[in-house]
Design a binder for these strands. Sequence first.
DNA 1: ATAATTTGACCGGG
DNA 2: CCCGGTCAAATTAT
Length: 316
Amino acid sequence: MDTIINELTQGMELAMQLKSILSSESYSETKHVLIQQIISSYDRAMSLVNRVDSGGQTLLLAPPMPGQPESSVSVDESPRSQDVSQPFDDQQEDKVASKKRKAMPTWRHQIRISTENGLEGNTDDGYSWRKYGQKDILGSKFPRSYYRCTYRYVHHCMARKQVQRTNEDPTVFEITYKGQHTCNPTATPPVALPQSPEKPETKQNNHQLPLPPKSEEMLRVSPSFSFPSPIENYQQSHFLNETDYGALEGYSPSFISPAASGTNYFIEGGSYFQQHDESNLLGITATSSMNSPLGFPADPQDLSQSFPFNNSGYFI
DNA sequence: ATAATTTGACCGGG
DNA sequence: CCCGGTCAAATTAT
């Protein structure tokens, strides 16, 4: 066990060093995402190892829990984004084994979109989500949108997320993740196609990085693509639908899926690569939702942890 | 035709 | 009954 820890620690340190070097260079979304994924991987592995005996319960289903994920590393050094991570105090919950609590991990993260110059970032976290609802929340000028993993029925992935535009600073969105993704498709990859060099390409995700899921627009001018925001979108469909198409393909979505998730890397314009679409540039809808009733800001809660969740990616 | 969104109805806790 | 969350039918985008 010690050996494992030592190896992990070493890997983590090396990754951190690499990260600092990279950050001094020109900004690159891809590099950041990759390094973040590497670090997150180590962090998760270390957490798992550490908690081995912690006991309590075995978490069959939800292994990952936020506990102290980030630990030392908070990678985001990027310009903006702040996340608030709060020490876990709610960890003590459970005292009573009431049946109700769904102990599902939840964490929050705020991102700022830089609308200004042309580009925006895509705030995508690499997963594909489907909007299933939107509600006006008391005290909030903007509606909150609810998303769930696109593969909910196909892969039993119960991950969900909520996106709420901040009252105070409209360029900041708070996204709250709930539950972990379990949609790793078919882990088949490794085994299945060991050597076949092909690239699987699926419509959307192929690069192995984060990819761009959908697009949407934001307040004015936003490039294209995706990020959740004011207007978010998602959908839900019936089981049938999903299953159906899921079946069609067979391969599941991406094996590449993962991507880091959440945390950081945000936007910021830079030059990214964006390959496709640009359909809508202007956002229109966005503003529509603005109604400002009463208001008082109030910033409610904050407990959160920030952290990504991601899955492991297996690489070939 | 199928998949994704939009939205008001519906639900359950407080 | 209020409110956050989810469902699902209608609508729109692919």
